[in-house]
């Protein structure tokens, strides 16, 4: 069955689209909401968004594949993105990525079989004062060490 937006999202989408003098300019906020509702931007969601914005599905794909935060495949319930840029790597990001790989049993780019975790590395998150840092879904966690990671993971049910 093809996906459909909930009524609440539809209302929000209408308001967002009205902000722009051209409908397609709303594509990023629309894709953010789409991903929140359906988990990713696959072929079905591309069609849905294209219809909403009066553009072709290929135009949606062009945009969706350009931006790293838009996922073509579903991610786990907890999407762990560890910064591996300079400030974080100076303070040991690489060993933390190895630690997470060992602890969750997946490499960056992979999802656990129970779909609980997806692990990935990411470029600078803009939180260098709390390096090394990571983002789980949209929550920032900084000044990380192995102990702190243990504690954070324990809190994720």
């Amino acid at each position: 069955m093809s996906p459909e937006f909930s009524d609440k999202t539809k209302k929000k989408l209408e308001e967002i689209i009205s902000r722009y003098s051209r409908k397609e300019a709303a594509i990023l906020p629309v894709l953010h909401l789409t991903q929140k509702e359906f988990g990713c931007i696959s072929v079905e969601e591309e069609k849905l968004v294209a219809e909403l914005l009066d553009i072709k599905p290929i135009q949606v794909r062009e945009v969706a594949t350009f931006y790293t935060m838009l996922n073509q495949m579903p991610v786990g319930k907890y999407y762990i993105q560890v910064c591996s840029n300079l400030s974080c790597s100076l303070l040991g990001a690489e060993s933390l990525i190895d630690y997470l790989t060992e602890k969750i049993g997946i490499k960056p780019g992979e999802t656990t079989q129970d779909n609980k975790f997806t692990l990935s590395t990411v470029e600078c998150l803009g939180a260098c004062e709390m390096a090394p840092c990571m983002m789980i879904n949209f929550d920032y966690h900084g000044n990380l060490d192995k102990k702190k990671i243990d504690k954070i993971l324990e809190g994720l049910k």
Binding site: N85, L86, S87, E123, C124, G126, A127, C128, E129
Partner: peptide, 9 residues
């Protein structure tokens, strides 16, 4: 996005 930058946040 410039790595190292977090002032605007």
């Amino acid at each position: 996005g410039e790595p190292g930058t977090f002032k605007d946040r």
